[in-house]
Each structure stands twice: as C-alpha cells, then as structure tokens.
C-alpha cells in the first residue's frame, strides 16, 4: 500500500497519521534511551558511582542500541530512495529531521571515539578517560546526548498539523522518558558485567533515583494527557483514542501498567532487600528495569498512533 492516507474515504472527518509507524517509534525509543544511558553513565562515572568496566559496557550496549534504531529508521525510508540517505543532512536550518540526523551522527562518532582506547590495538590513543582530550569527548557526548533526547520530542512538537504533538511538554516528556530508560538500563548493564553482587553497591544511588524518575514520568504523563484532554478537537480525539479507544490496551497495560506501575512496585519492594545475597530480589529488579524499557517503547508507539490531524478545512 502506498503511504499516506491512501485508503481514507472521501469524507470530512478526523484522521490519524498512519505512515510513521512502530519503526519510527523504535528509533525514537532506542536512540533516545541510548542517549539517556550514555548521559547518565558518564555522569555517574564522573561521580565514581559506577566503575570503568560498567561505563564501557554501557557505552557499547548504548552504541549497539543506537545503531539498531538507525537501522530501523533506514528501513522506514522509501524503497530504493533510501540509498540516497546522505541527503538527510541538507536542510538543518529548517528541518528538525536534518538537525536530528546531525546530532545522532555526531553522538555515534563521539561514542566510537570514546570507546576506541578500550579496543585492543588502539589503547595508546591520547584521549583515554583520565586525559583532557577524553574529558572533552565525554563532555561533548553528554551535550549531544541531551540534545538528542530533546530532539526526539522536538521533531514531533514542531509540527502544528497534529495538535496532540504540538506542545512544548512533549520534548520535556521525552527527555524524562529517555532518562528513565537510560537509568533503567544501567542496572541491567551492571548485572551483565558484574552479576548481582555489584547491584547493592550502586543501588543506594540508582533505586531512589529510579523511583523518583518513575514518579516524575507518571506525573508528566498525567499533566500531558490532562492538558490535551482540554485542548482542540483533534487533540481531544487523540486523548480519546489513547485512553479509551484503539490504543487503550497499549496505553493502560503497556505504558502505565508495565512501564510505570509494575517497575515502581517491584523496585520499591525489592530495593530495601539485601541484594547481594538474594538472587530472587535481583531478578525482581532486573524485571522491573526491563519493564521500563517496554513502557518507553510503547509510549512512543502509542503517541505516534494517536497523532490526529485537524480538519483540513
């Protein structure tokens, strides 16, 4: 099927955009979460909360996630036409997509540069963790990571064609969700690199922060939906489809239940336990962190699906 509202009947009614699908949602989630992960692990490494091995592994995982997200975005481009993808950088003065392409490219390059000294054969490169060059690269990576998190919301909010997206709260919500997914991924990285025994050491910082971020994201989501429920006709229709229409399952079960309530309860209950000696509690926490990732993706996906155009006339 051709893309666009091609099967729409010739009647005047509110229509949802249908061409930006789950691939774009995965890109916004994957690259955003990856940016959140790198930002937080550089910050926490700076504060000596996590060790170098965790930071490096997190960076590798984040890099792979960003590249996979970009691969999804590539397949979303037009068949045949997608091979001219380098044209995407041509109009940064007016297009948020072009700006995002610049940001994500620089971020990937910075990550590769930061990771290179840890690769056998490149260990002598003069921008290791303790050098000025390394500090500069890390500062640049944090800057571009934050820029990408904001971009993932700005690209949608910049268009006034779809009222549900056209609000300054969307970039704020997406930044908050990127931080949440990044922070939720960090315990999984710790678990993968050190097993359960290290979880207790980092937990004193991570668990309260995660609970706080979960509560903050829930609050932002509530404000967002509430605000849109009193906005234009198209925005109200978006809210209707989200909370009681076609996307209600994805929203209530996925975004709210799995993405916010479940991890809040699991982390809240498990955080007080002795983690090092209790594999079951560690598993609880890991499950909670995994649930955050599912909620993060479903938020982007359902928000894209309920993007309703206003009446064209």
């Amino acid at each position: 099927m051709s893309k666009g509202l091609t099967t729409a009947p010739f009647t005047l009614e509110l229509r949802a955009q249908c061409h930006w699908d789950w691939k774009v949602a995965f890109y916004l989630y994957g690259a955003g979460s990856s940016a959140g992960l790198i930002f937080l692990e550089l910050l926490l490494r700076r504060w000596d909360v996590i060790d170098e091995a965790t930071a490096l592994w997190g960076m590798w995982i984040g890099l792979v996630l960003a590249l996979v997200s970009l691969a999804f975005l590539f397949t979303h481009l037009g068949p045949s036409a997608r091979w001219r993808f380098l044209y995407v950088f041509r109009k940064p003065a007016s297009s948020w997509i072009a700006r995002g392409a610049f940001i994500v490219t620089v971020l990937v390059l910075l990550r590769i540069l930061i990771l290179l000294p840890s690769v056998p054969g490149f260990t002598g490169l003069p921008w290791g963790e303790e050098t000025n060059g390394g500090a500069l690269l890390r500062a640049g990576a944090m800057l571009f990571a934050f820029a990408f998190m904001a971009y993932s919301g700005l690209v949608l909010s910049s268009w006034n064609s779809i009222a549900f997206w056209n609000t300054p709260l969307l970039p704020i919500l997406y930044v908050a969700y990127s931080f949440l997914a990044g922070l939720g991924a960090l315990p999984l990285v710790v678990l993968a690199t050190h097993g359960g025994e290290k979880m207790g050491a980092v937990g004193s910082i991570l668990w309260p922060s995660l609970l706080l971020l979960l509560a903050l994201n829930g609050f932002l989501l509530l404000i967002y939906i509430w605000g849109m429920a009193t906005a234009t006709v198209a925005a109200r229709e978006s809210v209707r489809r989200l909370v009681s229409g076609s996307q209600r399952g994805s929203f209530w079960i996925g975004v709210v239940g799995v993405g916010l309530v479940l991890p809040f309860v699991m982390i809240g209950l498990a955080a007080g336990q002795e983690l090092a000696n209790n594999p079951a509690t560690t598993l609880w926490l890991a499950t909670g962190c995994g649930a955050i990732q599912i909620g993060g993706f479903l938020l982007r996906d359902s928000f894209l699906r309920v993007g309703i155009y206003g009446y064209p006339v």
Partner: peptide
C-alpha cells in the same frame, strides 16, 4: 531525485496532501 521518503512532509502538512509511492 532528492527525496528519500522520510515522510516528514506527510506528517507536517495539516491538509494531509503528500503521499509516498512505494512502487505497488
């Protein structure tokens, strides 16, 4: 010759005018 099929125009147009043809 320059379009790569991003479909940003389709989202940005409030009149939902543009389409993308995938060679069906």
């Amino acid at each position: 010759d320059v379009c790569i099929g991003v479909m940003a125009c389709m989202s940005a147009c409030p009149y939902y005018v543009p389409y993308r043809w995938d060679g069906e």
